[in-house]
Design a binder for these strands. Sequence first.
DNA 1: CCCATTCGCTTAGGAGAACAAGCATGCTTG
DNA 2: CAAGCATGCTTGTTCTCCTAAGCGAATGGG
Lengths: 132, 132
Amino acid sequence: MATLTGGPGAQGVTLGQYLASIRKDRGMTLRQVEEGTDKEVSNAYLSQIENNKIQQPSPNVLHALSEVYAIDYGYIMELAGHITPAKARGDDQRHGRVATFADHNLTSEEEVELINYLEYLRSRKHSSGKTK
Amino acid sequence: MATLTGGPGAQGVTLGQYLASIRKDRGMTLRQVEEGTDKEVSNAYLSQIENNKIQQPSPNVLHALSEVYAIDYGYIMELAGHITPAKARGDDQRHGRVATFADHNLTSEEEVELINYLEYLRSRKHSSGKTK
DNA sequence: CCCATTCGCTTAGGAGAACAAGCATGCTTG
DNA sequence: CAAGCATGCTTGTTCTCCTAAGCGAATGGG
């Protein structure tokens, strides 16, 4: 758990490497993951992803995998190159809005995903489409 | 503003119709939108989308458009068929977590997008992968 | 030993997104 | 009218995801 899940600073690890190691860590086979995602990700396709044959799996697929493995969605989005490596920033104009989500009665799971998505949003904003 | 932005209940409007009407409402040309998205969406491609030649523009593209037009991301994701038409539900186990996002100092824009994304998450959960 | 199953993996192919280039029309000016 | 430009749209092509089908190797039972 040290090296791989450590930090986003590790520039060397690929999406395939990461996902493969996670799957082995969870003790799952390709076909078990396929079942776990409710057929959203086929075993064959997962194999391609793990061996870096697929350059950018769709957010859909990554989302399904992140839920099966219970890993950070934003992180693998980053590994997949969908977003640029979120650097911590601090000079935007924010506002102190807090109570909004009181109405939403968040599940803990939803809470986690929202936080991940916020990370995703912010990295998008700050990199401003230089990806192409 | 009545018919189109009215409610998600309107089943007849297509993604193309909606986006086209919004663009005209904003008084923008195809190429202006192309510029506005920082070339993320070409004018030719936008034309195809507006004429329903493209069935499912990627979340990337939809996100870019939602920002240029300042419209609801979750709504056009829904129109595009990426998510199922979020029906209000109420028997999940939630918890009263509220304060989490106090640390995040949300921008109003971020707040809006998070809410949209929450909608997206919940519709995904409740439809449980019958999309395929 | 043979059969069945399961594993990871490869390959071929369909499908559809996305773009670049170009066309057709209409509107302004000279 | 002709030249020029902007706008919306069509066409041809490229690229890549993703699936279906299947292969060789490993394992286990009869």
